[in-house]
């Protein structure tokens, strides 16, 4: 049986892997190859590098990191953050990335997903969706049929600053239709709270799309990770801080999941 995946997420800025709490007090987390190798030894199923660099000048600095890690650690690598064009995909794949993750750029120009997956295959195109439960006010916004859209989740862009008005479920379906091979789903309501994934959101998206869904945002305990899979129906779970700060290792997470009957690679 296909194993559920555990994916540590590493933040990268200025060519270094960093760790911080809510983007403040970023601290150097050490050598990217060493960190990647450590997660690999713990049994990480994939690694995701998120480029949090604000300027496009700094962005290319992630390429040497991807190159260095890809030459030493032989598990799948995903790169997200600032991926905008088909040319960005090419450069990241050339550097050794296996998948690239689009977010705001897919909202600004959905065709880029058709183009990128058409050229390099769906297997290397991930679409990241930052979703937030609609406010009472947003539920009253009228849809194309003139009816209030009602409860659900909206997609936010630009690092969660801008409400696009798009419905998360419909957006996930459209992205899969356009060629996304995977959806990385982050709950903005839960992100950073350590209170667990938004399980209703995860379940709704996971049931709505034919492609794998990675749950992200809100993990504080091992129970949360397991719930993302058993309750949320996710194919993979992604977490950053609980691994970076050594709260739990990937191996402990997998052990916990295995004890609860979840298929994991041990």
């Amino acid at each position: 049986m296909l194993a559920k995946r555990i994916i540590p997420c590493l933040d990268v800025t200025g060519g270094r892997v960093v760790k911080g709490v809510n983007f403040v007090e970023l601290r150097d987390a050490g050598d990217p190859v060493e960190i990647a190798a450590r997660y690999n030894e713990q049994g990480a199923d994939e690694l995701t590098f998120l480029d949090i660099t604000a300027t496009s000048d700094g962005r290319d600095l992630i390429l040497p990191i991807v190159e260095a890690v890809a030459s030493q650690v032989f598990i799948p690598l995903t790169v997200g953050g600032g991926v905008r064009t088909v040319a960005d995909v090419r450069r990241l794949l050339n550097a050794g990335a296996d998948k690239t993750s689009f977010n705001s750029a897919a909202i600004a120009n959905p065709d880029v997903i058709n183009e990128a997956s058409g050229k390099y295959g769906s297997q290397c195109i991930v679409v990241a969706i930052d979703a937030k439960r609609r406010s009472a006010e947003a539920e009253q916004v009228l849809n194309a049929q003139g009816q209030p859209v009602g409860p659900g989740w909206n997609v936010f862009s630009h690092g969660g600053r801008k409400d696009t008005g798009l419905d998360a479920l419909q957006w996930a379906q459209e992205m899969a239709r356009r060629g996304a091979g995977e959806i990385l789903l982050t709950s903005m309501d839960k992100d950073g709270t350590k209170s667990g994934f938004d399980l209703a959101l995860t379940r709704a998206v996971s049931d709505a799309v034919p492609v794998p869904v990675i749950a992200s945002g809100g993990v504080g305990t091992l129970q949360h990770m397991a719930d993302g899979i058993t309750e949320g129906g996710a194919d993979a779970v992604l977490a950053a801080s609980i691994f970076h700060f050594g709260t739990f290792t990937v191996a402990q997470t997998k052990q916990y999941m295995a004890e609860r009957g979840i298929s994991v690679r041990l």
Binding site: L2, S206, P210, V211, D235
Partner: peptide, 20 residues
């Protein structure tokens, strides 16, 4: 399409991940 894995989750295509 429409089939579910042993744990109740739907089969996704592509098969993406680790298998035996």
């Amino acid at each position: 399409a429409g089939r579910r894995q042993a744990d109740g989750s739907r089969y996704k295509i592509p098969q993406m991940g680790w298998n035996r």
